[in-house]
Amino acid sequence: MSLLEADSISRRLPEGPVLLSEASLAVAGGEFVAITGPSGSGKSSLLYLLGLLDRPSSGRVLLQGQDTTGLTGDALAALRLARFGFVFQFHFLLPEFSALDNVAIPIRRTGLARAEARDKAQTILAGLGLGSDSAKMPDQLSGGMRQRVAIARALANDPAVLLADEPTGNLDTKNAAAVFDIFAELARDAGRAVVIVTHDAELAKRATRRVHLVDGRIVSDAAQG
C-alpha cells in the first residue's frame, strides 16, 4: 500500500480555469519524487492537493489507504500537523521569532511544553548544520540558512510526507544543490515520501522518480536512477 495516493483528482477554480485534471499518483515511503513542468502546468496545485492544503474538485486523496475526502477542516489540519511537512519557495518564517522558536512552534502545537519543544527543535536544527545559529532572527540569516530553517520547521513533527514547492527557487546554485541533497537524504534515510515541485531540470534529475505535467495533466511518470 502506498503512503500517499491521488486517485484521479481534478481542481477547477469557480471562475472556470482548470488547474489540474484527473491526475493519479501513488507515492511510497522512501521515494523522492520530483514534479516538473512549465509554469501554470498545475505542479503546485497537485502538491497542495497532496498535502491536504486544498480540496480536489473531484477525485480522492488517500493517506495510508484512508480516504480524506469527507474530513472536516480541523481533521485535515490535524493530519497536516502530524503527517506532513511543507517547504515553500519563500521561507515564510515568522519574522518575530528566532530560528529556534520558528521550528518549535509546530512542535508546541502538538501539546509539548515550550522547553521540551525547544530542545527538540535545537536537535533538528543541529542536524541541518544550524546548531549555532538557532538563536538568530530570520532577518539575520542568509537565504540558504533561512531555507534550511524552513526545512527544519517542516521536519519538526517528524512527518511521513515532506512536500516542497520550488524550495530552491530563490537560492543560488550551490545552496540549491545543498538543499536538494538534504531532501534526497531525508527520503533515503528516514523512509519518508518526499515530493518536490521544481522547474530546475538539472536538479530534478537527481530525484528517484520524475513526474512531468503539461496543461494540468500528467504526461510522464518514470523512475530514474
Partner: peptide, 16 residues
C-alpha cells in the same frame, strides 16, 4: 496574511 497561511499549512486550525 502570509503568516496565517503558513500557520495553517503547519496544522493550525481555523479556530486557532
Amino acid at each position: 496574511t502570509r503568516d496565517i497561511a503558513i500557520l495553517k499549512s503547519l496544522g493550525f486550525t481555523e479556530r486557532d
